[in-house]
Design a protein around this nucleic acid. Structure first.
Lengths: 216, 216, 216, 216
DNA sequence: GATGAATGAGTCTTCATTCAT
DNA sequence: AATGAATGAAGACTCATTCAT
């Protein structure tokens, strides 16, 4: 699965080689971490010499950034593609979550790069992930808002509550995705279901004005 | 707070020196990451020479492991100490969460070591954190079980559901702690309240048999 | 002046291409130095691909040698062209010096290659410059000898004195040329005048038997 | 001559090792040039491992700068020490020049570093040499001024003329020193004498109002 | 006549780790 | 109890140079 096929030394168009290198880089960064990954290892895994990696991708830092960017884009794309516009908002949310868990399960190294490595190392990198995360949160916020409007029961939902919910939902999804990847305990659909149970129910409670408070 | 005071070269009992070194190490590992942290920097920050660090802690790997272990223990201790046995289960859970958020906020480097660094690097380290996490999950599971028994309304709660809830709760707490530390957006009590709203309400729903399902 | 105009990839006669390359090389070598100059930069500045540079000029070493040779020839040519045969010897010397300073001022990179870079790096290169320098010294020696014969006043001038004078004159000229190029403090004519004041007056003194000696 | 004596691996106080390293560096930089000299070669010549060189001298750039600074200081010191304050100004100048030529002849690598290498490579380095040169020029200017006052014959000497003379004198000395080093053609005293003949006589002429001019 | 693709060899630099005292 | 001196091994990055087309 994912084994690089090219015979070493074969002349290939730049675009192809570049993709091979990035594949190798994502895998290596995802498994070893940014610092522990060596350009030597990446080059070897990609089936090319080190100078070629530098010729095409300039530096370890730029290579890592390119990986983050590519994986972030792919993940967002996958989530967007997983959402079917015609459905009611809760079903849309569910399919989006399922797509998210499916993608992260199918690209564990990419997810490791995004969720673990990119955030563990300093500022050139974290920003890219933050941007992606914000995009996701905004997307989820829209869906929740729509759902609240569709199923209008009881008092208005404050923007602040919606934002909090979205934030927590994405955070929980990230946490669950990592857990699922590492332990293999749940499938994508199960994970999506679990999250819906928390989020949707929580949303319902808020809309009905029920809250937990320390005083009672 | 954190400024090392000892004059360099002063003879000091081993235990004290060891604590200074580990303090320096936690700070350095937490801020730079395992690979980027250098023994030189740690020794200097601790106000001792490098050979002394090796004399007491043997190797970078062992030093890191010791840090993880110490910080994990401290965190668990803090949570346990935050729980008052006499209270009803939901209040106990709340105070435990508050203690968790308080501790992570007060020891950001320790939390960074546990939550980010230890899991980002290979197998010698991740295991220690996993063990701590399991301990926390077990603890939370107990509380949730007790709460369910106390507030017995409706059908029995399946063990599986309780486990899922506990798992999710801890995951969400971790995610929130990181977020709170990085952005400083919420206080410990606020974070605990937010989580209770999700978890407790979710629990209530489950106990009353309400679930979200894709089919409807 | 200096801006390379050719569209990349256009077929051009070999001689033209070769000149473009050497122009680029002189500029790069002069500004960066032999080691710091990269074939990549030279090729790009010349507007051709690297293999073409190798096809025409074989290696970095040969390219550098070719540059030195070309610039040396050009400098000598300029000096010779500046001397008008009919004039009295001192005027000839003056016009020669002026031509020297003019040329070095107009070709700063070429002069840097000859005066700085070629002598700074080992033996394949220094020899070429030495040869050129010897040619210049010989030329000046001739002029000085002629002048001495023309203005015969007092005792014979020993060959040794003439040689010393010529040597010193060329050395001083080189030093002044570098200084003028770097600081832009004097024009070519001013520099020539300054040198004449030293050299010619020194010559006059020698011819009249006046010397400085430590004993008095 | 100059062979480093220390047995490899022997523990030595830092100051001693540092001097060994700088000696090796001056030699290597002087012969190979800044770029061509490799830290490996320097370390080996100094009889230590590369990391030690970095531990003590930080980087190639700093090492080179340190060399330049040390050699510049040594040269200035030598010239100052060679001048005996009690003598008449012309004798002082002569002894100073002799000291200069003696020192450069005895430290050819140091002189190569200062005169060739430091000026051939960019701005971190050239500045140090320029500063030293300015110091020398100022020193010589003083002497010439004093001499002019001592031997007051004829019209006042303009400051501008004195400055020009000093500048030219130092330039000529530098050029001669290089020539003497490379060819071994003249001794220090001969070189000093030659220069005095030019400079002193030139000075005398200027003081007597005699000048060469193109018009006649 | 001209180039895109590719690399072996080498350079600077850092780091965990150990002696000898 | 504590340290100044020292290094083997490895990692990021560059460059002159060559094929195949």
């Amino acid at each position: 699965m994912g084994a690089v096929k090219s015979a070493k030394g074969k002349r290939m168009p730049r675009a192809v080689r570049e993709r091979q290198m990035m594949d190798a880089a994502v895998r290596t960064f995802g498994q070893r971490g940014y610092r522990a990954a060596s350009m030597d290892e990446i080059a070897e895994l990609a089936g090319v010499s080190k100078p070629l990696v530098y010729l095409y991708l300039n530096s370890k830092e730029e290579l890592f950034t390119a990986c983050i960017r590519r994986e972030a884009q792919a993940l967002i794309e996958a989530v967007r593609a997983g959402v079917e516009p015609g459905l009611p908002a809760d079903r849309q949310l569910w399919t989006g979550l399922a797509a998210f868990f499916t993608h992260t399960a199918q690209h564990p190294d990419g997810w490791a790069v995004l969720h673990r490595q990119a955030r563990t190392h300093g500022e050139p990198f974290a920003a890219v992930v933050t941007a992606m995360r914000d995009e996701l949160v905004a997307f989820v916020t829209t869906l929740i808002g729509a759902a609240a409007r569709e199923a209008h029961r009881g008092p208005e939902l404050a923007d602040r509550d919606v934002a909090g919910l979205a934030q927590a939902l994405v955070g929980a999804a990230e946490s669950l995705a990592g857990w699922a990847n590492e332990t293999g305990a749940v499938t994508a659909k199960e994970a999506a279901g679990t999250l819906m149970n928390f989020a949707w129910m929580g949303l319902g409670n808020l809309m009905e004005g029920r809250r937990w408070s320390p005083s009672r």
